[in-house]
Design a protein around this nucleic acid. Structure first.
Lengths: 262, 262
DNA sequence: AACTAAGTTTCAAATAATGAAACTAGTTAA
DNA sequence: TTAACTAGTTTCATTATTTGAAACTTAGTT
């Protein structure tokens, strides 16, 4: 749970999240009715965030929306803290080879966050899916990433899952998910068996460090009309090559830290 | 200038920016040496931001980088506060028709922020340029956007330009830029005459509201080996169609605000 | 063992955040 | 026209948080 014991800064970021979670520009009064803060306090937070460009105020409509400064900051996150720059060429060739949609994802606070995507079918790339979040307990990438979490963090992560039943095959308890996670660790890969959307299946592999921590995951997605789990499973060696190449590059990615003697 | 009179929250965001601006993971001591805050204060900010997922700490290397929470937040910004969702299909067809690279940009604090891009040449899309920032005074999109700024804001914006001379044609003073801005307002479009990079030229049009405020801008980029300014100018009608279509959609985009009677 | 550098914790003083209530402006109802 | 209501903004004494110098802890040198 996002610790709310982080003083004023934590509270302000809570407000920012609240605006972002609406998915559309919101009025002050709408925020107020969903906020634990009193009017004046919330008002000041919203003012501060707007001054800072973290929120954008539309004076015509009197609404607040997430601000452009977030795009700038996220671009920095993408470039320096995500696997995307390393992975991009590998994803291109993987997607070409398997002729299907490829996703690159990382874990953020027990949620899946999609970092990049290659869409083999459509000639046109969807507008950036980057930053899109998804559930960990019912996606291929999510399950393979939490499978490699250390036991302490795994408990936390499982507690944060909603276990909402999307389809007939969705895991609805931590217990049943745990069983599958053991299988995933044994095999080194995992499936999405139409657990999130009917007709959509995928196979996912973790991107592992030498110490077997998952830095991220790659998945190849298809539909039950085009293939089946066995079909996807046959792609494992090809996908593993990609995952290992990315892991390898990631380990040698960071330049030696320049030593200052000022 | 990003007002630094925004209390604790403003200071924390200043630290966040500082990390982001390094472009690579940084050690605490590196941050400290470039910071106006004393050790303990900076330390607490970095801790708080890390707790909050705005920074990510790499325990192996002892470095901080921008966190994944930023991607999630930026995705929300992209979807609800940028022109990207509205513009995407128009950009597709524009790029197809003109057979060149198309950019969509917005203004953030007197800087250009690239929101989306279509790359007609390469089959492969560059990994998300979204969030990338650029100078306003020497890019096509930048100039057409500030050209339509109200006089008050224009002054501010000009003060914030660095006027660094990238090439022989770069504007190096507010005065010479102002002259061109008048031309842009008269014509309704502007050029980049190799002002940022030698050999790279572009034509840009603003996306205007009914009240002539620029919501953003579109540009078509090419090289001096392929075409010239007159060649780009001939695309104006086609680009204008796109800009107007986006502006039109944007004005009717926001749903009526639902009234709560809880 | 002594020295150095990087990172972390402490605690009284200084500062900033808090929120109830008052106020303003715009809108609807009587 | 006046009254009542709603949304947004400001005030200010109280309260809680931030602040930062200095002390402390590692961990790596010499």
């Amino acid at each position: 749970m996002t610790a709310s014991g982080d003083g004023t800064v934590g509270k302000a970021l809570e407000v920012l999240d609240q605006v972002a979670s609406h998915g559309r520009p919101v009025r002050f009064s709408e925020l107020l009715s969903g906020s634990r803060f009193p009017k004046a306090t919330l008002y000041r937070f919203v003012q501060t965030l707007t001054n800072q460009g973290m929120l954008a105020f539309d004076p015509d409509r009197g609404t607040y929306a997430p601000g452009m400064r977030l795009l700038r900051l996220a671009h920095a996150a993408w470039q320096t803290a995500s696997l995307a720059p390393i992975a991009t060429s590998y994803l291109d060739s993987l997607s070409m080879d398997v002729g299907a949609t490829v996703h690159l994802a990382q874990l953020d606070n027990a949620q899946v966050i999609y970092i990049d995507k290659r869409n083999a079918d459509d000639p046109v790339q969807m507008y950036s899916q980057s930053g899109k979040v998804g559930p960990a307990y019912c996606t291929g990438v999510g399950k393979v990433m939490i499978a490699y979490l250390p036991e302490v963090d795994l408990g936390d992560a499982l507690n944060q899952q909603s276990f909402h039943r999307f389809t007939a095959t969705t895991h609805t308890s931590a217990a049943s998910l745990r069983t599958e996670l053991a299988d995933i660790r044994a095999n080194g890969y995992g499936f999405d068996r139409e657990e999130h959307e009917p007709g959509i299946i995928c196979i996912a592999l973790p991107i592992l460090t030498e110490t077997n921590r998952a830095l991220g995951a790659i998945s190849v997605t298809s539909t039950t009309t085009r293939t089946n789990l066995a079909g996807l499973e046959s792609l494992v060696p090809r996908i593993r090559t990609t995952a290992e190449a990315i892991a390898e590059d990631a380990s040698s990615w960071y330049f030696p830290i320049p030593v200052r003697s000022s």
